[in-house]
Amino acid sequence: MELRVFDETVEPLGLIDEMASLLWHVKYFDVGTFNLLAPITDNNKRLLTEGNIIVKHDGKREVTDTAGGIWRRAAQITYVHITKDENGLEQIEAQGYMLSQWLNKRCISPQIVTTATNQSIINTMVKNNCGSSASTKRRFPRFIMLAQENIAGSTVEYANEVYAKLGQEVKARAQAGKLGYDILINERSRQYGFYLYKGKDLTAKNSEGNTPCIFSRDFDNVNEQEYTASIENCGNFIYIQGAADDSGSQPVTTVDGEGASGLELTEVFCDATDIARKYQSGETEVTIPLNTYLQMLKTRAAAELENYGKIINFVSTINTNSNLKFKQDFDLGDRITCKETKWGIQIDARITEVTETYQKGAEEIEATFGDSLPTLVDQIRKVR
């Protein structure tokens, strides 16, 4: 495995010559991160500076476009910390984010009001705010939209909060549509590409004819497993309130997720006053018809209700010498089957996160199946 370093114009700067450890953490629904610890050498000190781009080459399968171009995940260094211990050992620590973090450099402007699939909405957001349809000042340089499959999905009424962060809205629509995304790099063409995709169904009983991918200690392809199930934050019926109209009346609608009643019914509330009743179309102020506005509220409500489902989290440390190879037999975003016979557990779940750890010449892969447990920040946002 080698780490290549580039500047933001994708000009190659060199290779990291020595490394103590690397944690490369990629996510399906969100922005990935990395953490690199290396000894201080003249070369490392030159390369590991904030703003530079790191690309990992480890022989694993990458994304290939129709012209044969190879696209890889990459990360930008955003934090550098240099230390010297009591024994005189000097080390440099570099941290940063996968390139999809760049989406949060933009606010959505103008506001998007549309009826479309989540795939179409995401593509419109990106094109209008940092892609080819954005003004010259707002475009990301060397940036294109990578070719995508036509991903099936229902049509929804959508309107974003005025000047919402692009990255946050892309994440929300990706979660709603069960889609993965990132910004990849092509070192040869010196380009960046927005990558939107849906993982394959590799579950034990998949109907797509794919070879099943089953993780179980019975098959010696996992070293450690950890299972968590939680209903502490469950909800299956949501009230949602929108912005006031000219008379001051605030519309309220509901989404019933499961048709539950009695003790099985758990109600939650969402304040969606950020979804404006009016928007600008050129020089004209347009008032959204009530029926359309109520459908927009239902779209938001359905997405919010996704956050209140039962949390099932299955974390496995994968045996890298087993029958299943990362990026060969399975990849981030694929749906697979997890099985633990002694615990009486078998679930079909999506691979939502993968952490690759390189240390002392050895590689370890940890995969998260299902949903990560909510962070404190997520919980605070839900309270609000």
Results as ranks from 00 to 15, higher is better:
R72C: 15
R61D: 13
V31F: 06
S189W: 00
L376K: 09
L179H: 08
N44I: 01
V5F: 15
S281R: 05
G131N: 06
S247Y: 14
I238K: 03
R188M: 15
L184C: 14
Y239K: 02
E356I: 07
T253R: 14
K360S: 13
G180R: 04
N210K: 11
G96I: 05
A303W: 09
K339R: 06
I318K: 04
V354S: 02
I112P: 04
I351G: 01
T266M: 10
G199S: 11
K178G: 02
R300Q: 10
V377I: 09
R139M: 13
T83Y: 03
I122M: 06
N210E: 11
G282Q: 10
P374Q: 08
N321L: 07
R61W: 08
V5Y: 15
K205M: 14
K200V: 11
A159E: 03
L36G: 02
N206Q: 10
N236G: 03
I312N: 00
E2D: 15
A172E: 13
R138G: 11
N323T: 06
D274W: 09
Y197K: 11
K137E: 15
T83Q: 14
A362I: 12
E356N: 00
G282K: 09
Q295H: 01
K298S: 01
I214D: 04
C338F: 07
V377N: 04
L146D: 07
N44Q: 03
Y163A: 11
C107G: 12
